[in-house]
Design a protein around this nucleic acid. Structure first.
Lengths: 111, 111
DNA sequence: TCGTTATATTGCAATATTACGATAAATAAA
DNA sequence: TTTATTTATCGTAATATTGCAATATAACGA
């Protein structure tokens, strides 16, 4: 196969998996961390920053954008990318929820 | 290609990407949520719970285990799986860090 | 208009992932 | 030992992902 049977899972499960998947590649983690590091929301310096070709970086940016993790604004010839806080907040609250629930039920594995 | 150029990224970036990747499939999200829901760390009821065949579920469990998100203990014929809190804590702190850093630098995209 | 710069898209090759049937391995019970 | 039960592994097909060269597109300045 190779295709996930997404239709069998809940909308919430698919939503969170999609969001998480966008960050499941070191290049995309690096992009997010770079956008976080530079104070302004720098544009295609990302290409210079990463050890990947321009088309490859462009593709990773597209994936991040599609997933809602970053936003892009046209700025003349250049395009300015920046992190979408909403998506990060969603991920943050998801993992906080997991950790919190775990803590509450003293997760002693199989006694 | 198809192979990620992991060697060009930092260890930390690869580590977090690997951990995140383990959760980038709705079935694996569902497994984690199920393990969180049931109080005891139930074993192969997961197979009954998911709309996937036993070999497929076994494969997903293996991925989660390899990534360190779950632990497994032999319990007679059965195997008892449960969440590894350490991994969840790592993810939690990573996203908390992202959100916190974002907040501190009032991320007005390309204002 | 033409050239330059910045980014996106296309096309393709290499590899990875997802899923499952068949089968193996391991343990428990009879 | 034999049989049933549970989980893992193997083999394989379908599909997705990663990466890049080549090319297209878009916007600016001369």
């Amino acid at each position: 196969m190779g295709a996930s049977k997404t239709e069998h899972f809940s909308t919430e499960q698919n939503t969170i998996a999609t969001l998480i998947k966008a960050l499941s590649h070191p290049a995309r983690v690096a992009i997010i961390e770079y956008l976080l590091k530079v104070d302004a929301c720098i544009c295609g310096d990302i290409v210079d920053e990463l050890p990947l070709s321009q088309p490859t970086v462009s593709q990773h940016l597209k994936e991040l954008k599609t997933a809602g993790l970053i936003k892009g604004t046209v700025e003349g010839t250049a395009i300015c990318y920046c992190i979408d806080e909403t998506a990060i907040a969603k991920l943050q609250s998801y993992f906080n929820h997991l950790a919190q629930t775990l803590e509450q039920k003293n997760n002693g594995c199989c006694g």
